[in-house]
């Protein structure tokens, strides 16, 4: 009985959403710096809500990643996974994505919304959330190809040359 598919769809969607919102918040922070600092303005509220969504979204994605890994190894024997290029890529980059999510969650928990104050922190925080979200999308797309035989992202993946090795 396939358990893995039950766990992987929701948090992948959340991961993609947090990446988009992180990009929007970086743009807000760069372009509308004063607007987001003025309490009570719509811009400030939106920025704050996006920040909260990104943080809790990251936590959900991390939990989903753990569930996805455990269920993946429950569904298929390890030897079958290591013999498949798609699965090899998914295993390696799922671990990297997990590390990035732990990094951004710890950073945001430690600094609270001060993470958006300094350029050195918010750029790294935001970019890492985007990188992790893109990784989630790629990992999911490769899983889709491995199971269903096709993915809407196939032209992009072919262009990049994934999966490798």
């Amino acid at each position: 009985m396939a358990l893995h598919p039950v766990f992987v769809h929701f948090h992948t969607g959340i991961g993609a959403a947090t990446a988009v919102l992180a990009l929007i918040n970086i743009v807000f922070r760069l372009v509308f710096r004063e607007g987001i600092r003025t309490p009570g303005t719509r811009m400030a509220k939106l920025f704050h809500e996006f920040d909260i969504f990104i943080h809790w979204g990251n936590i959900i994605v991390l939990l989903g990643l753990f569930a996805g890994m455990i269920s993946g190894f429950m569904d298929w024997p390890y030897v079958a996974l290591e013999n498949n290029a798609y699965m090899r890529f998914k295993i390696l980059w799922s671990i990297i994505a997990t590390e990035i999510y732990i990094f951004v969650i710890v950073l945001r928990t430690k600094l609270s919304d001060r993470v958006w104050e300094k350029t050195s922190s918010y750029l790294i925080y935001g970019i890492m959330v985007i990188v992790a979200g893109v990784l989630m999308i790629i990992i999911a797309a490769l899983g889709g190809i491995a199971v269903y035989g096709e993915s809407i992202l196939e032209p992009v993946l072919d262009w990049i040359g994934l999966p490798w090795p």
């Binding site: 298929w76 079958a80 013999n83 498949n84 290029a85 190809i145 491995a146 199971v147 269903y148 035989g149």
Partner: peptide, 11 residues
Amino acid sequence: DVDQNSACDTC
């Protein structure tokens, strides 16, 4: 999926 290039019993 018929595009795989490993033994079918992998999956």
